[in-house]
Write a protein that binds this DNA or RNA. Structure first.
Lengths: 205, 205
DNA sequence: TAGATTGTTAATCGATTAACAATC
DNA sequence: TAGATTGTTAATCGATTAACAATC
């Protein structure tokens, strides 16, 4: 099962499957069919089976997939069977909300550091963290070996922050700022500008 | 140019193009080629031309696309040449951040109402708004004719909130809660659970 | 066993890319 | 005019779906 052989569309659905399996597990289900998952997710049953079959034969004919074992397997493939340290940059309203969000840890992530450039904010509390001076970011992130960054700054600062993160060795960036980032090929960016999905929907209203 | 004839993948790229054009305009550019847009967005130039050609002939050979006129056209197609009222449900940290966010208005959205079910929060301030009792949501949203909702509640409450929004006439939902929502066919949902894109990236780390 | 559901194949469907005549 | 870039076609590429033998 060569990583480069799995299409990105398939990989991009795995976290969705994992989330649904975790919910199913909470409901006490031990086994779930592709048909049942399909109804819960709006992804076709054939697609779910095809996607999962790329990683192994987890299902049993006549019964479906064992919920806990499949969730474990997906966590391993997604590498969220460990907890990743994340660096947060930009501690405004959104940054604070992220720093205080309780939903990261049990799904594989922990905000380990928070940076801002505003002297008023540096040294203040954000969740469990003390906001640090962005000028110390490169050294701190490098030393800690952090590979994941979250950008919650205004758009005007985001590219510069991205450059700093890349320089510090970060390989995955979650960008809340409403701007496209240019990064080297070995760095991944995912975008969470809320206006983009809103505008995708108003087209159809 | 029949709406149902435009593939959703194409529609889904329009807000990205619009955002890039707005940035280009701020930089003082009046004309931009598909090649230049391609470099700024990581979408191929051929794809940009093909997408845009589905809506009309906005470009000029030898020069490219007029930035302001194309942005106007995209805003019209996306229907964000007006400002949509949005209802926010769930006023925790994230809900507060959304209520205070300044980036919505000039891109076509305005949070017009905010609801929570917590008596401690009802009546308090969130941005410019007073948090209202969720039990009054259906009537208030219906009367105001609001078509767009944002869910920023915990996962456990999200489906129930979605049902209320649908009942109140909402046709587009932006869901921050980490759960898949089941809604009627004429209602659209977009998802912004931050853990999904994070897990998509850890696969490759 | 009988019923249900998987994993997989082949067929269909749709999206992307390359290339170039048209034209600003 | 010469150079640049569009809009569009045809070819390629890739993803989804339908169907079913295998099997729990």
């Amino acid at each position: 099962m060569d990583k480069s052989k799995i299409p990105h569309v398939v990989v991009s659905r795995l976290p969705i499957y994992l989330r649904a399996l975790e919910h199913a597990q909470q409901e006490g289900l031990t086994c779930i069919s592709s048909q049942e998952l399909s109804e819960r997710l709006g992804v076709s049953a054939a697609q779910i089976r095809k996607d999962l079959s790329m990683f192994g034969e987890y299902g049993k004919q006549g019964r479906g997939y064992p919920v806990a074992a499949l969730a474990d397997a997906l966590r391993r493939h997604l590498q969220v069977d460990k907890v990743w340290d994340v660096v947060l940059v930009g501690v405004g309203d959104l940054g604070h909300a992220l720093a205080r969000y309780k939903g990261f840890t049990h799904r594989g992530f922990r905000i380990a550091m928070a940076f801002d450039r505003d002297p008023e904010k540096i040294g203040t509390q954000a969740g469990d963290l003390i906001v640090e001076d962005i000028r110390t970011l490169a050294r701190r992130v490098q030393e800690a070996g952090i590979k994941i960054g979250m950008i919650a700054t205004p758009a005007a600062a985001a590219q510069e922050v991205a450059n700093m993160l890349v320089f510090a060795g970060v390989k995955a960036i979650l960008n809340y700022a409403p701007i496209h980032l240019t990064v080297p090929d070995d760095v991944r960016v995912e975008y969470l500008d809320p206006v983009i999905p809103l505008q995708r929907m108003t087209y159809y209203l």
